[in-house]
Simulated assay, not measured.
Amino acid sequence: MAMESNSSPNSLGEEARNWLELPADVTSMILLKLGPVDILTNAQDVCSSWRKICEDPLMWRVVDMRYSGDWWDMDYDLEEMCRQAVDRSCGQLIYINIEHFGTDDLLQYITQSSNQLRKLRLVYCNRISDEGFIKAVSKLPLLEDLEISFGSFDVETLETLGHCRPLLKSLKLNRQFYRRVECDKGALAIAENMPNLRHLQIFGNSLTNRGLEAILDGCPDLESLDLRQCFNLNLAGQLGAKCSEKIKNLRLPHDPTDDYEFSTEIVEYGDDYEEDYGYPFGLSDTDLLTDDDDYYEFSGGSDFSDYTW
């Protein structure tokens, strides 16, 4: 009769792993995977050694306050937690993401003690004003990577951004595409004020061929350009060839959006637009006006034959 095996790690003489005895550098790498919210609410209270690691400024050089749950229905004060994270960085912060809950006061708090900041992510931060934004970024001399998607800043703010941060290398300025709206003001502001850009993502922008041509001419070092859902563009001719020749990593208007983290719904700009939607993210009411103070009308310049509304 075969003898039944009743082996286990303990019966074989193997010791159970004690996670609290891991080397500090290994523990810190594991804790970094948790993110600031989990560290401040749970991990730092496990034991004194973990708390010591969690208080190390090197743990807070990168602060991504993105929250996986429903941020508007949570028990935590994300703004206060973000301030704690900034304090713990002791001026060594190089990247911060405050999407959804950013305010003027919080942004000022961050920039007052974080002049080493190189990357800033502001998504759905509609409580940050144009004045507050410019005041903050003017204090960040090393800033080279910026995302201000789904905001409501004026075009003049983009121009001022280019003036005070001329060495900006990467910009994401994304929003949903608004059908029947054409506007090149944002594209022209980028082209005329951000000559050192290497990476540009303007998903859902309402620019036309004129705006794209200006970007290609005004940003000679551009290496990657994401034009997905920029459906006012017609790239069938020389402009398309110019894009392909100049840009190493080019995403075209109809390219797949599987790796895009936000909504790809296309919004109809109509008579009830203000009531249902407000203004397009990234454009103020005056930015949508032509020189004749009339709204741009969609001209049908792009080929929509392979897109289902």
Rank of each mutant, 00 (worst) to 15 (best):
Val137Lys: 02
Leu146Glu: 00
Thr208Ala: 02
Ser170Trp: 08
Phe153Tyr: 14
Lys185Pro: 03
Gln176Met: 13
His199Glu: 12
Met194Phe: 05
Arg165Phe: 04
Ile215Cys: 05
Asp217Phe: 09
Tyr178Val: 05
Ile148Lys: 01
Ile215Gly: 02
Leu188Asp: 02
Leu200Cys: 08
Thr160Ser: 11
Asn193Tyr: 03
Leu167Asp: 15
Lys139Pro: 04
Glu182Gly: 06
Asn205Asp: 14
His163Pro: 05
Leu216Ile: 05
Leu212Arg: 03
Leu161Ala: 06
Asp145His: 11
Leu173Gln: 09
Asn193Gln: 05
Glu147Arg: 11
Met194Ala: 04
Leu143Asn: 02
Glu156Ala: 13
Gly186Ile: 06
Leu168Arg: 01
Ser206Asn: 12
Cys183Pro: 00
Arg179Asn: 15
Leu140Val: 06
Gln201Asn: 13
Leu171Trp: 03
Leu161Cys: 08
Asp154Met: 11
Asn196Trp: 11
Glu147His: 09
Glu213Leu: 10
Ser170Gly: 10
Pro166Met: 10
Thr160His: 15
Val155Ser: 11
Ile215Leu: 07
Lys169Phe: 14
Arg180Phe: 15
Arg210Tyr: 11
Leu188Cys: 09
Val137Ala: 06
Asp154Thr: 05
Thr157Ala: 11
Thr157Asp: 07
Cys183Leu: 06
Lys185Cys: 05
Gly186Cys: 13
Thr157Gln: 07
Cys164Lys: 07
Pro166Asn: 08
Val137Ile: 15
Asn174Ser: 09
Leu173Gly: 02
Val137Asp: 04
Thr160Trp: 10
Asn196Glu: 14
Leu158Val: 06
Leu212Trp: 01
Arg198Ser: 15
Arg165Gln: 11
Ala191Ser: 13
Cys183Arg: 03
Ile148Ala: 01
Phe153Thr: 08
Lys185Val: 14
Leu197Pro: 00
Leu200Ile: 08
Lys172Gln: 15
Leu207Ala: 07
Gly211Trp: 01
Leu142Tyr: 12
Leu200Ala: 07
Pro166Val: 09
Val137Trp: 04
His199Asp: 14
Leu158Ile: 10
Asp145Gly: 12
Gln176Leu: 15
Ser152Asp: 14
Leu161Ile: 07
Glu156Cys: 13
Phe177Ile: 06
Asp145Arg: 12
Lys172Cys: 14
Leu142Lys: 13
Phe177Cys: 02
Leu216Asp: 00
Met194Lys: 04
Asp154Gly: 09
Ile190Ala: 00
His163Arg: 13
Arg175Phe: 04
Thr208Gly: 01
Ser152Gly: 10
Ala136Leu: 05
Gln201Arg: 15
Gly186Arg: 12
Gln176Thr: 13
Val155Leu: 09
Lys139Ala: 11
Gly204Cys: 07
Gly211Pro: 10
Leu197Gly: 00
Asp184Ile: 00
Ala189Ile: 09
Ala187Val: 01
Val137Arg: 03
Glu213Cys: 09
Asp145Pro: 09
Glu147Tyr: 04
Tyr178Thr: 03
Asn174Cys: 10
Gly186Thr: 09
Leu207Ile: 11
Leu173Tyr: 12
Phe153Asp: 08
